[in-house]
Design a protein around this nucleic acid. Structure first.
Length: 272
DNA sequence: ACCCAGGGTAACT
DNA sequence: AGTTACCATGGG
């Protein structure tokens, strides 16, 4: 990986297969927007970034310092996805999925944002999920010169279900409040989820009302980078019924979450 | 009115 | 422990 710093941006070359647009807009995160100048922009962990990709080169409007300390990790640029995809290619369907959706990386998102976002995602569609999250940030996040931050669990823990009415999140509002309270109080222990095996995190997250297996898996995968987590939504359910009636192939062992992300996007966009 | 969407829960065998 | 009703919201 080669990083070159300019006045107000850096370029990154020679990185592992990575597709910026695909990674930020394949259903794992909901806050990235494509501006008219063809740059993706978002506020992540309180930091604002504009980014674009052209001719195998990344343009990140940030400092080399912030890149090394935040974005490099967030975009998982030091992980060898080439090798991972070669492993997954042992299965014929995953060979197609990883080829046709090449460059998807798992984004290392903030645990609370991932949890809260995927609570909102339940029985919902992606455009509306994005709308609810945008209203959540505008109503309860911190205003910055570039937009609103994602509100903290501590902030949301002070609110009531009625306070969330403007979000139009429906029955999910009470789940958001319960999650915020349990995370803010430490009843759901994020630090321990980070260090303990995944089974601890599964049980811990499902102490929250409205968090079942699927939302827990998404939180563990995108918020805690537990890449063996395997969220099964309606699309992955279809994949399993159509292609893997006897379960996932051996080559996915330990990296089920990454396989899932390719299969999810592939099934939604490349099939039929 | 009917369908679907990155589901969850409770009450059953 | 697995299945099966039932729950819930807004957009098409």
């Amino acid at each position: 990986m080669k990083v070159t710093a300019f006045e107000n941006y850096i370029t990154v070359e020679d990185y592992a297969p990575f597709n910026l647009g695909l990674s930020v807009d394949c259903g794992q995160s909901f806050r990235w927007k494509l501006k008219e100048n063809n740059r993706w922009c978002a506020i992540v962990r309180g930091r604002y970034l504009e980014a674009s990709e052209n001719d195998g080169k990344l343009f990140l409007y940030t400092s080399e310092n912030e890149f090394n300390e935040l974005w490099r990790d967030y975009f998982d640029l030091d992980c060898n996805y080439g090798e991972i995809c070669r492993t997954l290619c042992a299965d014929e369907h995953l060979k197609k999925a990883t080829t046709e959706c090449a460059g998807i990386h798992i984004l290392k998102q903030e645990p609370w944002e991932a949890l809260c976002s995927f609570i909102i995602s339940q029985n919902n569609n992606i455009p509306r999920i994005k709308g609810i999250i945008e209203r959540l940030c505008e109503a309860f996040g911190d205003k910055t010169e570039y937009g609103f931050t994602f509100p903290t669990a501590q902030k949301l823990a002070t609110l009531t279900v009625e306070d969330l009415a403007p979000l139009r999140s429906g029955f999910r509002a009470k789940y958001i409040i319960d999650a915020a309270q349990k995370v803010a109080s430490g009843e759901v222990d994020f630090e321990k989820i980070k260090t303990e095996p995944i089974e601890f995190g599964r049980a811990e997250l499902q102490k929250i009302k409205g968090v079942g297996a699927k939302v827990a898996e998404c939180t563990l995968l995108y918020g805690f980078y537990k890449i063996e987590a395997f969220p099964v939504d309606v699309w992955v359910k279809r994949i399993m019924a159509e292609l893997y009636p006897n379960g996932l192939p051996e080559c996915t062992k330990g990296i089920e979450g990454i396989a899932q992300q390719y299969l999810f996007h592939w099934r939604r966009t490349c099939i039929e």
